[in-house]
């Protein structure tokens, strides 16, 4: 008869391997942010797609002049700015959750999240920069 190598009792069954709660509301706020930004984005993105793809000739009329004309108005600038920030942070937070759920090792998790944060910062900052410094008279 073979004997098993596994110990018959669990080692220190009462010792907790969890770190103490951090008393941070970050996860709470990110959860609320996802719901609120989702509702706002629904309106912003559907409006954006309606204007860009369907109304008044749709996608065929989009060119440099069309974009320049839109961004001459502060209303569309703010619309696009809010959409950019919300979409970037909403999508980024969603991906953060996916990475938290699915990465197997802490190192993979750390580096994937670093890559994610860098790309969010790059996209949001670059987009904001273009929105504020856009020059319709560029040659």
């Amino acid at each position: 008869m073979t004997t098993t190598e596994a110990p018959l009792s669990v080692d220190k069954p009462r010792s907790s391997t969890r770190p103490a709660a951090r008393r941070s509301n970050f996860e709470l706020y990110s959860w609320i942010f996802m719901r609120l930004s989702g509702v706002v984005l629904l309106f912003l993105v559907l409006g954006h797609m309606l204007i860009m793809l369907f109304l008044d000739g749709g996608v065929h009329r989009i060119n440099f002049a069309f974009v320049a004309g839109r961004w001459a108005s502060p209303f569309w600038q703010v619309w696009d700015l809010v959409m950019l920030w919300l979409a970037g942070l909403h999508g980024g937070n969603g991906l953060r959750t996916v990475i938290n759920d699915y990465s197997r090792s802490d190192r993979t998790r750390f580096w994937l999240k670093m890559l994610l944060y860098c790309s969010i910062v790059l996209i949001v900052v670059l987009g904001t920069y273009v929105l504020f410094t856009f020059d319709p008279n560029i040659s």
């Binding site: 969890r18 709660a21 951090r22 008393r23 941070s24 509301n25 996860e27 709470l28 990110s30 959860w31 938290n100 759920d101």
Partner: peptide, 12 residues
């Protein structure tokens, strides 16, 4: 509630 508010808590 503090314990469940953290990263491994209910928000998952």
């Amino acid at each position: 509630l503090d314990i469940l508010n953290d990263v491994d808590g209910v928000w998952r």
